[in-house]
Design a binder for these strands. Structure first.
Lengths: 134, 134
DNA sequence: ACTGTAAGTGAAAAATATTTTCATTTAGCA
DNA sequence: TGCTAAATGAAAATATTTTTCACTTACAGT
């Protein structure tokens, strides 16, 4: 329930559509905006899906996964440990990889470049066992 | 010149538009399809830019960088060492980071998941020194 | 509980991005 | 030099995301 408290604290209202999107993302995996819209059977507008995802991302409740095919997917991350993704280039399946090997790198890069690092995205691409057979 | 040999060997023709796109990418950094189209002052069709990028990516001459704002950028990589990117969330500036800390991770994940890993994408996000002041 | 109001919503339109279609042009081999 | 399959570009189609605006709703203050 920490998600709703976060939304309120930021001055946003808890509305029906927002709860729908939250619940949908919470129960699932890594969805595109359209998948969320269709998964909810158009009980809300696609516009609202986009707007809600924008807010949830801004608040850190949801994270964006940008794939090299140009698609964007959204994942509910509250209560999850930071992790990375393994994407099958055959079927599109996405696995979560526990742990993160990048923290040290972030610090090193921060020192070298004088950037203030706010985060990172790491995706591995490959073929899942099933797609290897095809 | 290895790029043209690669294109030929794959059965594609060396055309004017393809050379324009290659030269544009080779002399520069990380461009979107539209930036390439406009950088070349519309001496070729945008359609052709997309088609050319698709081929160049397929042949490994160019790589795609997917950013979390949903944009795709293309980078000429022949002769470059594999590297990662540091993206300023303020001004969009992209630095290249030498070296790669992910090779070990790839092997570990391959063993754990039975995927055949084909590659990965790692982008760090942060604020560049100039944007920190704003 | 009731009400006022700023925030949120959805439909439609607009803007943006990418792909497909198809008639014409061209690279490069015979 | 001519032939032909591949490539091109303009336009249309499709897909994705954002903006606009009139209507609705959450919720703070009574």
């Amino acid at each position: 329930m920490k998600d709703k408290a976060t939304i309120k604290k930021a001055g946003y209202k808890i509305t029906g559509p927002r709860q729908l999107v939250l619940d949908f993302l919470k129960s699932g995996e890594h969805y595109t905006a359209k998948e969320i819209y269709e998964g909810l059977e158009k009980t809300l507008g696609l516009t609202t899906v986009y707007r809600t995802l924008e807010i949830l991302t801004e608040l850190g409740i949801v994270e964006t996964i940008a794939l090299t095919d140009g698609s964007l997917r959204y994942e509910y991350v509250l209560g999850k440990k930071h992790h990375h993704h393994l994407v099958c280039t055959g079927c599109g399946d996405i696995c979560e990889l526990d742990g993160c090997a990048i923290k040290d790198l972030e610090e090193k890069v921060a020192k070298q470049t004088a950037y203030v690092i706010s985060g990172h995205a790491l995706e591995l691409y490959g073929l899942c066992p099933r797609c290897q057979k095809k």
